[in-house]
Design a protein around this nucleic acid. Structure first.
Lengths: 235, 235
DNA sequence: TTCCCTAATTTGTGATCACATTTTCGAGGC
DNA sequence: GCCTCGAAAATGTGATCACAAATTAGGGAA
């Protein structure tokens, strides 16, 4: 198994009080965030079956809040109930579905980037550069997980600026669905031939405030990444 | 209150066995369908607060399956938990959010219609004509609810044909979010000045297999309806 | 009548139990 | 060694209970 064991959650997968900043959030929200992070970064492979009680004991909570978090993830198609078993698993992607994912991402994410231009600040640009450096460093070390995480941080740091909640939610849902498969593909390709991302051009376009260029570069970035996945799926 | 009382569900809001065709579906799925229908047809006004136990007793089930159905609807932004109260209600739409809804619907629904062209049959066209006749009849009688229902049936009869699950889910989510507000606006306008829908042109384009025209007419139809809502919101 | 304070009710959340179905796994037979 | 069968374990679903927080209702004082 090329994936980290699922049953080992980080010691504080749920923020536990003082140090955690979400101590007032409900348990099922925290469980949701924990699971969503795992999925979006591809830490759970497609087809992998999970179970309420296993997750619950792994997180140190009762099955109840896990049920609610899982129900939410099912609604986002980030998890599915097998029709035969009614058992829980991470969905696999058909070529058809992947193409729809690609089209949707290529519609919503350039739009989000476009809207982020107006709200972009020097500080955020600095943070984006830091994200990109972490990304390059991960590439250098062959650290696929690090790449996934830095790439996610980079993109959503931009999207959050757009102040377009509906579009942001759509993007989250789409990433939740593509994360597991993306991780498999990128893990198989190795970090050497990972996408020539357009983050540099993107940052430059943000610096000059060229909204049209931002939109175009984001479109290219998404397109290139998804194209890799599509080729991998066909083979 | 211009809306039907929420607490009166139709005698068999949940299909109960022999006559119901979903007798094998889980209870929370049936509850979800019942609630989703109410919302998509605008039977629950924006801002209306609902409660798990009220819904549960109204449907004759325990609160448990209602919780799961509601959690799913919250994930789709068809319901929300007020941050202060943590109480459940139907969300209201800001102008900003409505614009995003409009953009998203105008992207996904023409695409769905476009894809439906290849799968369109004589039978389905006949059903579409029947839907449209029900719609016109409702308009004539001033029956806003009938209009909402026929319009929904017409559109999703098309979308289901597209065989694009992801896009179909996106459309459902968007309708769930716009339903309650749409009902308010159309109820206020009265059926006399309801949108000049483009259903006739749409049907004709389907009959001739003109996919480009289908896409255009669907775009116009969505645009016109949403434009009415936008104007109403600004006032 | 109007205002305010208290008690009763209602609410969402989490835990626990019960149950039918499915999967897992090991003993026994070939 | 390989297969088969049956008991044990695990799984999703639904119901019920407990609890803290919030809302509502009602009665008494001005």
């Amino acid at each position: 198994m090329t994936f980290p064991a699922l049953n080992v959650f980080p010691p504080n997968a749920l923020s536990t009080g003082v140090d955690g900043r979400d101590e007032d959030a409900s348990v099922h929200d925290q469980v949701y965030e924990a699971l969503a992070n795992l999925l979006i970064q591809g830490q759970i492979p497609p087809g992998k079956s999970v179970s309420l009680r296993t997750l619950a004991s792994g997180l140190g909570v009762s099955p109840m809040p896990v049920r609610e978090a899982v129900r939410r993830l099912i609604a986002q198609k980030a998890l599915e109930l097998q029709p035969s078993n009614k058992r829980l698993r991470v969905p696999s992607l058909s070529e058809d579905r992947l193409k729809q994912l690609m089209m949707a991402r290529q519609w919503v994410e350039p739009e989000l980037a476009f809207r982020a231009v107006a709200a972009m600040t020097k500080d955020t640009i600095a943070e984006l550069k830091a994200d990109d450096q972490r990304l390059m460093a991960a590439l250098g070390k062959g650290d696929v997980d690090g790449y996934m995480q830095a790439n996610h941080a980079f993109h959503f740091r931009i999207y959050r600026l757009a102040q377009a909640d509906l579009f942001l939610d759509m993007a989250k849902t789409l990433w939740l669905q593509s994360g597991p498969f993306m991780r498999v593909v990128f893990g198989r390709l190795g970090t050497v031939q990972l996408p020539q991302d357009h983050h540099q051009e993107l940052i430059r376009a943000f610096e000059t405030g060229d909204a049209a260029a931002v939109r175009q570069h984001m479109s290219d970035d998404v397109h290139e990444g998804m194209e890799l996945m599509l080729e991998a799926l066909k083979r």
